[in-house]
Amino acid sequence: MEEILQLVVFGIVIGSIIGLGSMGLTLSYGITKFANFAHGDIMSLAMYIAYFIVVDLGLMGPTVFSLSFGWGMFLAIAVTIILLAIFSIAIDKLIYKKLRRDKSNIVTMAIASLGVGIIIRAVVTMFWGPFARNFVPGIHEAVPITGNILIKPDQIFIIALTIVVTIVMYYLLYHTKLGKAMRATADNPDLAAVSGININNILAYTWAITGALTAVAGIMLGIQAQVYINLGFNLLLPMFAAVILGGIGNPWGALIGGFVVAISSEVSTAWIATGYKPAVPFVILIIMLIVRPRGIFGSNI
C-alpha cells in the first residue's frame, strides 16, 4: 500500500508537469485545430534557456527555503516565460500563418511543426551537446510526508507552482475580456469573428499563453528530472493523451487528463516493468480515441 501511495505522490508531481504542458498544447490545438508536434521540443528548449540563465550565466544564487536551487531559478522562470511567449508567436507568424492562409490542411501544419521540433532539438544539441545536465549537481534529499512516503522539497515546489499557474489561468480565462474572447474563438472562430473579435490578436495571445505554460512545464521537468533534450519529446505522447482525455481545447480537462495519465503510468510500474511505462498513456489514448474522441469533459471550455 505504501508503495502504491508513494507512486501516486510521484504521479502527482509528474502530473503537474504533464498537466501544465497539456494545458498549453490544448489551447493552441483548440484554436488552430492542428496537432503541434513541436510542443515537447519547445518544453525542452525552456529548460535549456533556464539552464543558460542559472548555470551558464551563473545567476543561480544561494539556495532558498529547502529547495535545491536559488532565487535565480525564479528569475529564469520569468525570463523563459517571456521568451517562449515571443518565440511561439514568432513561429506562428513565420510558418503557420502562411499555411493557414494557403488553406493547407491540418496535416501540412502538423508536418511543419515536426520540422520545427527537429530544428529546435538540433539547435539545442549544437550549443549544449547531447548529454544530460543538471541545474544543481548532486542528490537532493527527500523528506517524509507520513511514514515512509517521501517527497522532495523541489517536488513540493512543482506542485505549488502548478496550483499558482492554474489559479492565474482560471482568472485569465474566466475573469478577463481576453479570456472570454479566447473561449469564444476556440468554440467557433467564424462566429467570434462576426462578433467583432480580432481573430489574429486572439491567436497571438493564445500562442503567448501556450508558450508561457510550456516554459513553466519545461523548467519544472528540468528540475524534476534532468536537463536533457529528449525529455520533452518523450512527454509528447502523454500530453496528447491528456489533451484528448480532457477534450481538445479544454484546459481544465487537459490538466486533469495530465494527472490521470501520469498517476496511472507511475502506479502501473508496481505491476509491469518500468520499460513499458510509455505504453500506458498510449493505451489510454487509443481507448479514448475509439470510445470517446471528444474527451471526457467535451471540447467546450
Partner: peptide
C-alpha cells in the same frame, strides 16, 4: 491528426 498521434505512439 489523431491517426498521426497514434502511429507516432
Amino acid at each position: 491528426d489523431f491517426l498521426a498521434i497514434a502511429t507516432i505512439g
